[in-house]
Amino acid sequence: MSEPKTETVDVNGHPCRVWRKGNGPKIGFLAGFGGLPRWVPFLDRLAEKREVIVPSLPGFPGATGHTLLDTHLDWLIAVRQLLSKSGLDGADLAGSSVGASFVAEMAALWPQSVRRIAITAPFGLYDPKEPPADVWAQKADAVAGLLCLNEATYKDMKAVPSGANSVEWPIEQVRASEAAARVFWPLGNTRLHKRLPMIEAPTLILWGEQDRLMPRSYADWIKRSVQGKSEIRVVKDAGHLAELDQPDAVAKAILEWMA
């Protein structure tokens, strides 16, 4: 697994890290809850076929500026700028969890800005009969198991690498959780359901078969709501962040959809 090229783009005066790797038509990826403190195998799978571009959302690892964003509109504009400055205008776009919510929003609000999209268990919806789990009210040792079927996968991704700053690294991980909270606290409900019918782009809806955070019924809700062609793929042996549990299967499904 080789390292990606790292650059930085400016959003509202704050730096946001952008990773690039591979050749071919561009595909963007917005990370899920907790962000990506390090490069992961899933991105390598995408980079084998495409130029994968991974901008970090404000407040996620590698980026700051979330504290300037007070409203959902602030967030949507910031993400639109981030994608544009990362060179993703008109490209295929994938996202997971928190990132998937923004992918859906971009497709709904700026239809010309995306080609095809793939969203894995997006935040943003709320059904009182079947609410999402409260990711911010967990005992510290329960978070990894809520996000990944194999908790070691998440823990390893979040573990302090040798040589990293042992104070700043954990702060960066809390910041990622805070950034997600800033958008989605307390219920995760941004009323995304109101905008789903505006999505015209072909939409792949991915869901970890054992997602303990986001109810599976939301996949059907999304499929019923979007205008464009859509398909649900359930990922076996995967939790909420399916791309971490099953990098090969998720990358394969996305690449097939975008082909």
Binding site: A137, Q138, K139, V167, P170, E178, A180, A181, W185
Partner: peptide, 21 residues
């Protein structure tokens, strides 16, 4: 219940830093 004790962002980063140090 400790799951209600530490919502992210409640403690400022300066306070987290002081605590970790």
């Amino acid at each position: 219940d400790s799951r209600f004790a530490s919502p992210p962002g409640y403690n400022t980063e300066a306070t987290q830093r002081a605590g970790l140090e």
